[in-house]
Every structure is written in structure tokens, then in C-alpha cells.
């Protein structure tokens, strides 16, 4: 039952992701992306990560997509002319090769993926601690260094974005 649901949601997620690049209207693309964020939140829910699922909705479907739609509307992006032959472009030899490569990587990943669960993130542990505490304990003890590095990276990205914007 759960496996079937995960499979269905995965297929929907891929379909919405494909619709993001196939739709000709930028706002429609953004809406498909909101849908994609939603389905990924459902996937997190099926994995019993309630907290991460709702963060997915707040941060991605709510805040970031709102920013993107705001930017699209602010810049008044209309239909782009060259988007008509996206499908034709996608069937081009080079892209087909890329797609095959991607499928190969996916098969490789799935082949090695489902190994025995490691670490503290098991079902029993989550019921025992409550998942928010578990996650917070992990991030602020073992995962502290990557966490801080990511925040430095984000700050650098903001500075870079401001620099790029100031140039014009």
C-alpha cells in the first residue's frame, strides 16, 4: 500500500517536473513547480517526515515559489518565441544522450540504494524521540559543521547576487 503510494507520487512528481520545462508560459511553469514541491512534501509524509514535509511546503511551495512568481510578474515575462520547439530540441541527439546518461545514473543509484538503514533515523527512534527533537539533535551535534558551511555558502551566494545586481 505504502510502496504503491510512493510509486504513484513519484510518477506524479516526475510528470510535474517535466511539465515545468514543457509549458510555454512562465507562470504555468512556476505553477507546475509549486505542484512538484507539493508532491515531494507528500513523499516526505509517506516516509513519516512530517516536519520536513511541512518545511518543504512552507519554504519551497510557500516562500521560494512566491518569490519566483513575484519576479516573473515583476519582469513581465511573456511567451518566449523559441520555447515552441522545446519538444523538438529535447529529441535532439545530444539531449537524448544526456537523458540516457541520466537514466543510467538512476539505475546505478537504485541498484546500490536500498541497503540496510544506518544511523539513528529509524522508525522506532522517531516514535521514541519525536522527529523534530531527533532532527535538531542531529543537526546541532554531528551535522554542525556541514550545517555551518551551508550557511556560509548561502551568505556568499547572497553577496554574489548583490554584486551581480549592482553592476547593472
Amino acid at each position: 500500500m505504502e510502496q504503491a503510494l510512493i510509486l504513484i507520487c513519484g510518477i506524479i512528481a516526475i510528470a510535474t517536473a517535466i511539465m515545468v520545462i514543457l509549458s510555454r508560459n512562465t507562470v504555468h511553469s512556476a505553477m507546475w513547480m509549486v505542484g512538484n514541491c507539493f508532491i515531494i512534501a507528500v513523499l516526505f509524509l509517506l516516509l513519516r517526515f512530517q516536519f520536513i514535509a511541512i518545511l518543504q511546503i512552507i519554504v519551497y511551495a510557500g516562500a521560494i515559489m512566491m518569490f519566483i512568481i513575484y519576479a516573473i510578474m515583476m519582469l513581465n515575462l511573456r511567451l518566449s518565441d523559441d520555447s515552441a520547439d522545446i519538444v523538438k530540441n529535447l529529441l535532439n541527439g545530444r539531449y537524448l544522450l544526456l537523458a540516457l546518461l541520466f537514466i543510467g545514473i538512476v539505475i546505478l543509484g537504485v541498484g546500490f540504494g536500498p541497503m540496510a538503514l544506518k544511523g539513528t533515523m529509524t522508525d522506532q527512534a522517531m516514535i521514541k524521540f519525536g522527529e523534530v527533537e531527533l532532527l535538531a539533535n542531529y543537526i546541532f551535534s554531528e551535522g554542525l559543521l556541514p550545517f555551518e558551511l551551508v550557511s556560509v555558502l548561502l551568505t556568499a551566494a547572497i553577496v554574489g547576487a548583490i554584486y551581480l545586481a549592482k553592476k547593472n
Partner: peptide, 13 residues
């Protein structure tokens, strides 16, 4: 267990 976050998330949507 995420009640208030649920409200914050969906009120933005």
C-alpha cells in the same frame, strides 16, 4: 505534532 507550522504553511498558499 506540527500544527502551527501547518497553519503557517497553508495560509501562505
Amino acid at each position: 505534532s506540527i500544527g502551527i507550522l501547518f497553519i503557517l504553511g497553508f495560509s501562505t498558499l
